[in-house]
Write a protein that binds this DNA or RNA. Structure first.
Lengths: 194, 194
DNA sequence: AATTAAACAAATAAACGTTTTGTTCAATTA
DNA sequence: TAATTGAACAAAACGTTTATTTGTTTAATT
């Protein structure tokens, strides 16, 4: 299971996380594995390809953890909560991926022109959309515009991820995140107005 | 009222909007006014100071328009709507400011480390906070955490501004914005669940 | 089939002279 | 007197060249 390719990608992640793409050398990565740099070209066409593969590998792992959490929940609101909190909290543990995101914010861009990992992100959006759709169909959620809601919630989620892990500046984002989820679930309006 | 300083700042805005800060020369701005570059130093200490003053001038104008719209409304929900839509739509008309924001996204940053126009933005946030507070006190809005809600809503607002005017990529953000305001007012949950 | 080690090519950084451009200020103008 | 000019100066930006590093290829080796 932990095949050679995974070892190479993990070593690459470790090195790329230390500084950034540019300052990391192929020799450095090879050294980490006890190889010489030429050997790396059995696993990737180029330095850029190696980076691409390594990051995709890390992002997919993140996504799998979220998917598991969602599958463990039953009701739509629980799935929504599981998805929100797992996705938000995962990065706290994955130091390598977090450092890579800090050094290269284009991987998980707030305003993507051309998203280099579009497929992976699209997959995540679809996961969210499915939860929302199930909630609407079961009358747990209001009859929202599915596309708008998916886009909006995913954008807000991105915003929190970036603000918390990529450009951290503040304390206590945990409370902020909880308050945000609550506001999104219940809205601004009080139930009992006029 | 349109004093000399305003003329200088407007000419500066026009020039800075054409390209960007770096590529704009003091001579270019002076020419626009029919002056020589030395004269500009009666109005600002340096090129950077001139830029700073010009942008602050434009941002303050934007803010005034929003404030007027809010003051014209009565009920908290109307104030909230007025604030949201005026703030969002204003930039469509102010071409100079929009171009400057495109060339220099740090002016209105999604994730500010050190906000160069913190005071102006803080003023805007306070305007939003006041509307929310009034809504909570009159029981129109739920008893939210005022700080969290202000931060969240202002961040979402920034997100829309940047996505629509600074990194535009998509059509039909108008519908998206309306759907977002609706979702924030009413939340995901349907009223009549179990 | 994976890996090495040497050779090559491409990108990066350093050094340097040139030009542009921001800034100052004494003289001038209105 | 306050605003503006125009020349002088200093600092930053730019283009060019050279030296060095680093990515990539490949024939030989394990």
């Amino acid at each position: 299971m932990p095949d050679r390719l995974s070892e190479v990608l993990n070593a690459s992640l470790k090195c790329f996380a230390r500084y950034n793409y540019k300052k990391t050398t192929m020799e450095e990565i090879a050294e980490e594995l006890g190889l010489t740099k030429g050997a790396l070209y059995s696993y990737a066409r180029s330095k850029e390809d190696l980076y691409q593969k390594a990051v995709a590998y890390a992002l997919t792992k993140w996504q799998s953890k979220v998917r598991e959490a969602v599958e463990d929940a039953d009701r739509p609101e629980d799935k929504f909560m599981a998805l929100s909190f797992k996705a938000f909290k995962y990065l706290a543990a994955d130091h390598d991926l977090r450092n890579i995101l800090i050094n290269d914010p284009d991987i998980f861009p707030m305003f993507p022109k051309e998203d280099p990992f579009f497929e992976i992100n699209e997959n995540s959006r679809n996961m969210l959309r499915a939860v929302l759709e199930e909630g609407i169909n079961s009358n747990t959620f209001r009859p929202l515009d599915l596309d708008s809601a998916t886009w909006l919630l995913f954008s807000i989620y991105k915003m929190f991820i970036i603000d918390t892990y990529v450009v951290p500046d503040r304390e206590a984002t945990e409370k902020l995140f909880k308050d945000a989820v609550d506001l999104l679930l219940h809205g601004l309006f009080s139930q009992d107005r006029h």
